[in-house]
Simulated scan of single mutants.
Amino acid sequence: MGFLTTKIMQRTAVFVTFGGLVTSLITTFLPLWKTMNSDLNEMENWFSGLWHTCLYTEEVGIQCKAYESILGLPMDLQISRVLMSVSIGTGGLALLAAFPGLEGVETCSGKPGLKRRFLIVGGVLSWVSGLTTLAPVSFVAYTTVVDFWDEGFPDVMPRWEYGEAMFSGWFGGLALVVGGTLFFIAVCMGDFDQRPPSVPNSPQVTHRTKHYMKTEVL
């Protein structure tokens, strides 16, 4: 495909990585990781996130309150806070590292080897960012399922369920992993474009040509 050039692949990797980073950033601060609705009072909806919990009622609207103690949080939320912070940091570093390696950027112009290394570092950091997004979201999802099916809780007690932020977190993490993969594909495409052309007048080709000429004369 002529339109699928190394430059287009690099721009696509940046676009996908940036989209995944923004999605992960929004997911980190959304209070919609878990949701709960009480059968006793259907007018109340509870929402829980990494930083605060919210209550929605038709009379008052939505009211949010930050967690009072970090150490008092469940272990899954504590770990998720750390990993999502790492994800945002490494995702931002991935874009900063990959930018000098893009074609058309004058930074490090004339140094294809250095540009190639910048793209590789950007791809690795994007992978790390994606994995540190997928891990906490999947961990919270696992603990939510375990608590939901825990037979020790009475049936009348409301239980937490998946919120919209869980799905946006999975999408953002996958986008970051795909973006990192596209960076490596762009590096491979660049290596393929810079390969030395085959020389038709090489000694081996010349020797074979002479051999064929002798055979024709005989």
Results as ranks from 00 to 15, higher is better:
T90C: 15
K34F: 01
T90A: 15
G2N: 09
V124Q: 05
Y56K: 15
G172T: 06
V178H: 03
F148V: 01
Q194Y: 02
L114F: 06
V128Y: 09
L83P: 11
P100N: 01
P100E: 00
G169A: 13
D191H: 04
S87Y: 02
L125C: 05
L174T: 09
R81N: 12
T53N: 14
L71N: 09
W33D: 08
R208P: 00
L4M: 14
L114R: 14
V16L: 03
P197R: 15
Q78R: 15
V146D: 09
P158Q: 04
M1Q: 04
T209L: 14
Y162M: 10
S80Y: 03
F148G: 01
R159L: 02
G179M: 07
A186E: 01
A141I: 02
V177T: 06
S198F: 11
R81T: 02
D155T: 07
T181V: 08
M36Q: 15
W51Q: 13
L93Q: 06
R11C: 06
D191E: 14
F183Y: 14
L83K: 03
G72R: 05
M213F: 06
F192D: 13
T23H: 01
P136S: 12
N41C: 03
N45K: 15
E106F: 06
V205T: 08
Y162L: 14
G163Y: 01
K210A: 11
V178R: 03
S85I: 14
G152N: 13
K210I: 10
L114N: 02
G163E: 01
C64Q: 11
F118C: 15
A13I: 04
E68Q: 13
G89S: 06
T144V: 10
G104F: 04
P200F: 10
L176N: 15
V16W: 04
R208K: 09
G180V: 04
T209R: 07
D193F: 02
S126Y: 08
V82S: 10
W33L: 13
V145L: 08
L55H: 12
E161I: 04
F192C: 02
T28Y: 06
S109L: 12
A66L: 04
G89I: 04
W149L: 10
L30H: 02
G89N: 03
A186P: 03
G173S: 03
K34N: 15
